[in-house]
């Protein structure tokens, strides 16, 4: 059987598709930014001397690391409005940011924790004998070093979140996957649209992948073994 590829309806809806890509990128950036801000403190709390605090942050990490993102999204979408009452209105986009950020935070907190634990104690001991304050040690040694050491896996995690944004289509966020599904229903051209969808994801993610490889090489110069 011969199939005649016809991309005319794709070109005709080009702008709508690009808008979808825009939503995908904004959704990723918002979730990743919030996740980065939350994950560092949670990684610290995970090592807290207060048992309860450490346990709470561990529980958070465990729950949102284990739950499939799709389950989190639909749960937040359907259950949260009921729990919050009628006067709180959440847009699908807001719910998607929340769900993706929760997942990113949980995974990223573990990455940061590993980065913090990878710093040899001798480096902190030296700083202490020199009389650096706790704040100075955190500001000049622990935090920058943990960030450097975890840069590559952090970028990997960011790419992962970008891929997961497609799940937001289940709660009707107008990101590129959802837009594509909608256009297919309109035009009956699934093969063309799914092909273009794949190309669009590749074009968005590939530059990031190259950036990661460059970062990894630079990190190798700093922290790699000979």
């Amino acid at each position: 059987m011969e199939y005649t590829w016809d991309f005319t309806s794709v070109w005709r809806n080009w702008e709508v598709l690009l808008q979808g890509v825009g939503v995908t990128i904004v959704l990723s950036l918002a979730s990743i930014s919030i996740g980065l801000l939350l994950s560092f403190p949670i990684a610290f709390l995970r090592k807290s001397k207060l048992k309860f605090v450490a346990w709470l942050s561990l529980a958070f990490i465990e729950v949102f690391r284990d739950l499939p993102v799709l389950v989190v999204l639909v749960w937040l979408f359907y259950c949260l409005p009921i729990l919050l009452g009628n006067n709180v209105r959440l847009t699908p986009f807001a719910v998607a940011v929340m769900g993706l950020a929760l997942n990113f935070t949980a995974l990223q907190a573990e990455i940061f924790r590993a980065g913090l634990e990878a710093i040899p104690l001798g480096q902190l001991e030296i700083a202490r004998t020199l009389g650096f304050s706790r704040y100075q040690i955190a500001r000049y040694i622990v935090i920058p070093q943990a960030l450097w050491r975890t840069l590559a896996p952090t970028l990997g995690q960011a790419v992962n979140t970008l891929k997961l944004t497609s799940l937001a289509s289940f709660i009707a966020v107008d990101e590129v996957f959802h837009v594509t599904t909608f256009l297919i229903q309109e035009t009956y051209r699934p093969l063309e649209f799914y092909t273009i969808l794949a190309v669009l994801y590749l074009l968005t993610i590939m530059p990031l992948s190259f950036a990661i490889q460059m970062v990894e090489r630079r990190l190798e110069m700093r922290f790699g073994q000979d």
Binding site: Q123, E125, A127, I141, Q145, F223
Partner: peptide, 11 residues
């Protein structure tokens, strides 16, 4: 104190 392991700050 300058320890046997120099423990330089690696970043």
């Amino acid at each position: 104190l300058i320890p046997q392991q120099p423990s330089l700050w690696e970043h």
